[in-house]
Design a binder for these strands. Sequence first.
DNA 1: TAACCACCTGACCGGCTGGTTAATAATAAA
DNA 2: TTTATTATTAACCAGCCGGTCAGGTGGTTA
Lengths: 210, 210
Amino acid sequence: MSSANQVKKTGNIRAKSKVKILTAARTEFVLQGYRGATVQSIADRAELPKANILYYFKNKENIYHAVLEHTLQMWDEGIGDIEANEGPKVAIEKFIAAKVRMSFKHPEASKIYAMEIIQGAQHLKDYARTYQRQWVREKAKLFQQWIDSGEMVNVDPVHLIFLIWSATQHYADFETQILTIMNRADFEEDDVEQVIAFLCDIILRGCGLI
Amino acid sequence: MSSANQVKKTGNIRAKSKVKILTAARTEFVLQGYRGATVQSIADRAELPKANILYYFKNKENIYHAVLEHTLQMWDEGIGDIEANEGPKVAIEKFIAAKVRMSFKHPEASKIYAMEIIQGAQHLKDYARTYQRQWVREKAKLFQQWIDSGEMVNVDPVHLIFLIWSATQHYADFETQILTIMNRADFEEDDVEQVIAFLCDIILRGCGLI
DNA sequence: TAACCACCTGACCGGCTGGTTAATAATAAA
DNA sequence: TTTATTATTAACCAGCCGGTCAGGTGGTTA
């Protein structure tokens, strides 16, 4: 008991501090990029002394890795899933909805991920090379089966996945541009469902599913 | 004559050096971000002494602004145009083709633009607020007319523009991810036309134009 | 020849960077 | 209480940052 208790109590302080730091770091990395975000700026945002930051994370790269790990977790969850037995229409609908909801809920995660990829994905090459590639191949095969059985129009499954990824993530990554063009200060709850409806409508029809 | 000659000759050196510097800077800014790209790293890539860089551009921000200006010019050219008298099918086809070609031809421009927007578009707020917003409104009105006259299905024109923007730019910005997933080293010429064909196919059908 | 001027660059500078240390405070365990 | 562990932070450091400057070079004009 004492051992478990100790771990829990000490772990609490660690955990809380780490969350505080990572939240601040995430924002700084999005706003300033990896190099532009300084340990001092992260400390200021977290309202902690700089040395305290480096007590919990050995160095700046360490902080970034932790942020990135959380980001990939979001991406995985948000990637939705495409199940074979649902048929193409429901599968694509669910997939789009999951990705759009994730974009509106965790725009910062999407932005950090996007910046990583744009800059050459040096911190997560293996992730795409192994996990993502396999995921795409698997799901593409599923789409191909639906195409072969005449359940949907003949479109390249891999590019279809790219299309859905790009269209959904756009609302997170290009938030600023979209809001400016729509002359709005923030997104509202209605927007999420409206975007889902729009994307499902046009993409499903594009796949010959409406 | 002598005056014009002098201006031309001296201008030549200036122009060549500036191009050399801006090309190197563009690459550095993409790879490292604004803060991560140092004047020294730009100098190294341009194979010039650092002081020479700062002879042609007063400071680092100046270089970035020059790069950004070039980027916006690319964006403007690549934005294609949507003409009223062509009808929706041809208009959208041309629009998609122009944007895809631009993405494959100038991925760095697209990437810099994307990073600017993701980080809050602090250097080009007015651009989106005035120029882009007006462009979108104008083109949206056009789409609406086609919808009203029954020439295309009722889809939100503004979101349609966002969809086309995101889907086309994706091939520039997420180049790394796409190549990794497709298990390829580089894009080839065929890819451009294939992507255009795919996007036109699915989006035109999505708009009820096929 | 002499004066001029665009071009070039090594050497330098203050300030900020990521990171260390050592001393102290708080907390938990005995 | 005593002891051990964990948490905190001011002070410090070497190195790199953007940026300046003084002193060149070589070609053109008068």
